[in-house]
Amino acid sequence: MTLRFLSGFAAVTLAVAGLAAPAAMAKPMSGAGAVKMIDTDNDGTVDLKEVQAVASATFDRLEKDSDGTLDRKELKGRLSAAGLKQADPDNDGTIDKKEYLAAVAERFKAADPDNDGTLDAKELNSKAGKALLALIK
């Protein structure tokens, strides 16, 4: 169990630093595993600030051409065509970091049915929670 946690923690740490191999991040993440990796204040839940810190690092890692935006190719399936259109209010076919973080916030809110401002493992295992995790993996 400890080895699995350390391996998962190392994968997220490397991902945040932009060093993880894509295959390592392609593994499905459980809600409990996500909480362990994202929960910097160790309260057993994740809040929007913690999620957006990881999402910001994910955006930076995905943004390969240094134009300040993510296009469909750079997003690597994290958003469907409809999701990209919804996250792209200026309709330029790309999303900048502000738009990406807004999409993350929207998915966070959808995954928080009790509106307490935090997500636990059960909420992250829901369909909405998994959609959120897809953006930050």
Rank of each mutant, 00 (worst) to 15 (best):
D65Q: 11
L133N: 03
V51A: 05
A17G: 12
V16P: 00
L135D: 04
K127I: 04
D47W: 01
Q86N: 10
F5M: 05
I136D: 00
A103E: 00
D41Q: 10
A21C: 07
P89F: 05
V104Y: 00
L84G: 07
D67G: 13
A34E: 00
L132E: 00
L79F: 14
T40A: 15
L6A: 12
L135W: 10
K109L: 01
D43S: 05
T13E: 07
D114Q: 14
S30E: 01
D47C: 02
L133D: 00
K85S: 15
A24V: 13
S7A: 14
V54A: 11
K73I: 13
I136F: 00
A128W: 03
A102M: 00
M37N: 13
T58S: 08
M1N: 08
G129R: 04
M25Q: 13
A105V: 02
T45P: 00
L132F: 01
A110P: 07
V46F: 08
L133M: 15
S7N: 14
A81T: 10
N42Y: 06
L75D: 03
I95Q: 07
S7T: 13
D88Y: 08
L79D: 01
A131S: 14
A57R: 05
T2F: 15
A34M: 11
M1R: 11
N42P: 00
L70P: 04
P28M: 05
G44C: 08
R78F: 01
R72Q: 15
A34L: 03
N115D: 12
M37C: 14
V51R: 01
G93C: 09
A20C: 05
P113F: 12
D114T: 14
K122L: 06
G117M: 05
L124V: 04
I38G: 04
D65F: 11
P22V: 12
A87C: 04
V46K: 03
D88K: 04
D112N: 14
R78I: 01
T94R: 08
D71H: 06
K122G: 10
D120L: 07
A105G: 09
V35P: 09
F5T: 07
G18Q: 12
T94L: 00
L124S: 08
N125L: 03
K127W: 10
G18D: 08
E123F: 12
L48A: 06
K36I: 02
E50T: 01
K122F: 10
F5K: 05
L75R: 09
L6S: 10
T94Q: 07
S7K: 15
V12D: 05
I38P: 02
N115P: 01
L79N: 08
L70D: 02
L84C: 09
L62P: 03
D96E: 13
T2H: 15
V12Y: 13
N125W: 06
A23R: 14
D114I: 09
G68L: 06
N91Q: 15
D88S: 09
